[in-house]
Simulated scan of single mutants.
Amino acid sequence: MSNKKLAYDMSPQDQKAALEYHKTRWGIEFPGAQAFCSPAMKENINIAMDAQPQLVTTPNSGVPAYLTFFTDPDILRVLTAANEGAEIFGEKQKGEWTTTTLLFPVVERTYEVSSYGDHNNNGRAGINTSFPERQPYLYQTVVEYGDLEIERVGLAKIGFVAEQKEAAIDGLNKFGNLTYFKGVAGLQNYGALNDPSLYPAIAPVPKANGGMAWLNGTSINASANEIFADIQALVIQLINQSSGRINTKSRFVLAMSPRSEGAMTATNTFNVNVAALLEKNFPNLEVKTAVQYGALTAQNPQGSAVGEIVQLWAPDANGQDSGYCSFNTKLRAGPVVRELSAYKQKMVQGSSGFVLRQPFAMSTMVGV
């Protein structure tokens, strides 16, 4: 058994000498060391508290999370249904923003013939005039933006003022588009779906699968031939209403909801779909869509309470405009008003709804 003492059993003076020996002999140095520790000291955690004191700050091994965020400079703008009224019916300015009533002169020819006689003066030719009226409706919105808002939103690289103004213009156009289909209650201002001079709507034919609708959910309920027969009925209705001034070669616009347009893909047993049948039989017919022709739902609050609607429209029967969407002012921007630390600007638009000049040029079907 060895009598050699371990370093931690030495006296303090011998331990200091051993530390100095390690330094000079082996080049091993422990700056500030005073003694060797015994293995038992490893079990006492208080021994090393002066070497690694308790944290004062919250434990953390990273950087603030926002420093790792990335803001995409490509701004995504929420899309809503397109404004299709002017696309379907055309659009014209009538009057200006001070106009209170629009007058549309109408001339009807009158005549009476009688048997000829040298001394007879019977028979007369003349005209009858009338002046239907429409009342424009002015509506407005106000753009507001503050100094602090501009600065804060600008930190996200968003042009706050420009976006606010575009939102105002978009809102005015959305409302104007709605008046083209439904008019304004309480005024002589009507839309393409509720003009009082429209001929009564007709119903689609019953379908072999039941009901009269073209679609059942996302499935096509009617055959291609049944859908084509419904559109044929609309064409024949126009021909009858116009006393032959409209025929199968006339220019037509078939307006329906985007959902109903999906039924145009129905194919018959000869592998011919509805769109091809229409092109073959009515060469000047084009299909256009608007959500206002769809059924009223939570997703489509501007839809029709009576269900899906289809309208057939002859825009230029006998060389005259059969009708058009009308506005008296497209956009009137007021001055930018400076407040203490904000700005305001009023924007105005005016609509006269849909002006139906030739009621015989429109036929309507409800419930497809």
Rank of each mutant, 00 (worst) to 15 (best):
I28A: 08
Y324F: 15
G90A: 04
Y324E: 11
Q52G: 13
S2R: 11
L285A: 15
T68R: 09
P105E: 05
G176V: 05
Y139E: 06
G90K: 00
L278V: 07
G350P: 03
S243K: 10
G350L: 05
A275Y: 07
N300S: 08
A203T: 13
I309E: 08
S114V: 11
A263S: 13
S257M: 01
G210L: 01
G307K: 04
I309V: 14
I220Y: 00
F70K: 13
L340Y: 15
K288H: 08
R338K: 05
E261Q: 15
E96T: 06
R259F: 04
S114I: 04
S341W: 03
L178T: 11
K165M: 02
G244R: 03
P283C: 15
N271Q: 10
M256Q: 08
T110S: 06
N209H: 11
F104Y: 10
L215V: 03
W214D: 00
M256G: 04
N247T: 03
L193E: 04
F228G: 02
Q164A: 15
K94D: 06
S243W: 05
Q292A: 01
I45S: 15
N225Q: 13
S250C: 02
S242A: 02
E144S: 15
T110R: 06
E144M: 13
F89N: 01
L285H: 14
L172E: 04
S197L: 12
F36T: 00
V184A: 07
L285M: 15
A125V: 09
E149D: 14
Q140D: 13
A185S: 10
I309Y: 09
E339I: 00
I127P: 07
Q52Y: 14
Q237A: 11
L187Y: 13
A222E: 03
L356M: 09
L285N: 14
V205C: 06
K165D: 00
S219F: 11
E151P: 05
R109D: 10
G262V: 01
N328S: 15
P206N: 14
L193T: 02
S341L: 05
Q311K: 13
Q349K: 11
F282M: 12
D316P: 07
G90F: 02
A86C: 00
A192L: 01
L331M: 02
G183Q: 00
N189S: 04
L215M: 10
R245F: 09
I236V: 12
K344I: 09
P31D: 09
I239T: 01
Y21M: 12
A82H: 05
F160M: 08
T218F: 12
E279R: 15
